[in-house]
Design a protein around this nucleic acid. Sequence first.
DNA 1: CTTGACTTTGACGTCGCGTCAGGGAGTACA
DNA 2: TGTACTCCCTGACGCGACGTCAAAGTCAAG
Lengths: 275, 275
Amino acid sequence: MLSIGDFAQLGQVSPRTLRHYGAVGIIKPAHVDPATGYRYYELQQLADLRRVLVLRDLGIGLEPIRELLQTDGGVSLEQLRGMLRLRQAEISSSIVEQQDRLRRVAELLDGLEKGNVMRTTDVGVRVTDPVRVAETTGVAGGYGHENISPVFEDRLGVVWRWALESGVVPGICVAHYDWPDDSGHVVVHLGFDIGDQSLNETDEVRIIELPAVQVASAIHRGPLVDIANTFESIVHWIETSGYRIADRSRELYHEWDPDNPALRITELQVPIARA
Amino acid sequence: MLSIGDFAQLGQVSPRTLRHYGAVGIIKPAHVDPATGYRYYELQQLADLRRVLVLRDLGIGLEPIRELLQTDGGVSLEQLRGMLRLRQAEISSSIVEQQDRLRRVAELLDGLEKGNVMRTTDVGVRVTDPVRVAETTGVAGGYGHENISPVFEDRLGVVWRWALESGVVPGICVAHYDWPDDSGHVVVHLGFDIGDQSLNETDEVRIIELPAVQVASAIHRGPLVDIANTFESIVHWIETSGYRIADRSRELYHEWDPDNPALRITELQVPIARA
DNA sequence: CTTGACTTTGACGTCGCGTCAGGGAGTACA
DNA sequence: TGTACTCCCTGACGCGACGTCAAAGTCAAG
């Protein structure tokens, strides 16, 4: 019969831990003095405690450990095997996760050295919601703001008039681009979210649904002339993060103040998949 | 001006999270309606939120993140660098730890396949307390219970008489062994813990101090005839755990009922060091 | 004006104990 | 027998980052 302090010392744990184990039913004192409430342990229980500590140090929770000890005998062997395999899988995936984190930290540090603090910080992965868009298409001479911008102005007027005529409630403005063809020309799609509204298409305005996809996204603030930088950041991020570009990119114009381009807020989305 | 729900959806977090961030001072709503308490956010804050999420997903706590954002400007760059390096070290060591766990889980599973469930489960590392021992020495023909046991009986009688004569309060019984010499003979040291008591040595009884060392220890229950199995388990554990035997082993007789060998409880300790 | 979606504050739960606080119990010494 | 010191008890809060109710107020649409 050992006092809780002695037993704790032998088992290399704190008395508080033993009381806790008693409270959750893992290791109960062999005897409790009914008058004083003092806990007394037997030396035999040291082996039990050891087993608990071994499992605990494997990262197994106290509740599963309790279940294992409760059904001690033949049954628990299978359970133990199952638990261990489960832990094996959990630990493995957590290692992978940690290594991924380590890579991201290293990249951020790397970015710091080169002075571009906010660049990578802004890029993140997410899964977009599917969105129904009423859009028009136009053709630009290529990527780059000087090519895209005139088409934009033009098409924006078209959809805007269409919106007024059809009485639709326009949601957020959305653009996406097809891959350039051999001549370098780019098809530009420009429109806006229409939610669940049922509308008739016209020759110029089509209604399509952009599917939900996993994207790398970044927020671009200010005028669109330098949006290429943001786009480049995303592409760089994608490459160094073990992804590849999976589809055509999209742009969402969260804030579009015609009078103040500096306050514009644009979200750039590039669909990705594991490389 | 976005409601908390809209802003949360854009940022891919829950409203609860935003409220929490507001409460701890990381991201405060751009405006709070004084009448209703409704929180309203600006789209500009999305970038802030993104940065927070990036750092959070790196495993950095909210409090450090808050400090980084508070001192935004030139100063925080150095802090950020420091934080990231710290995280780098933390993640690295946690990966090592997880890999160690993974190894231990695999070994336990391996042991399960071979049917020796409790063997490895009982072995653990600890650091012993230094202990002062009054002991006698004897020579046995070799390791093995048949050689050790007669010497034990003999020496036990000697220290016991000495204890009675000197009026010492005996503590726990302790044995340790020197390495066998060329002829295979083993010097056996047998005595007991005397705590802080000051005592005179005799020709037969010496007082020594066993230093604090890191040991692999296991509890052996029952008679000593099969203690070799337990010893073998420890040695096997040491070898497969990346340690080596650093010194002579020790035995502690926690429970020593002369009438009932089945209830005996012996702790085997083998000093270890990293291989 | 109702309905339903959204929002507020407040509070508890998570996991494995560490760490008080306030008070009883055991042991050694005068 | 008093006292001092150590050990033990129960009960409670704290940690970290929110999830998850609950009760009640707010908003926009029909």
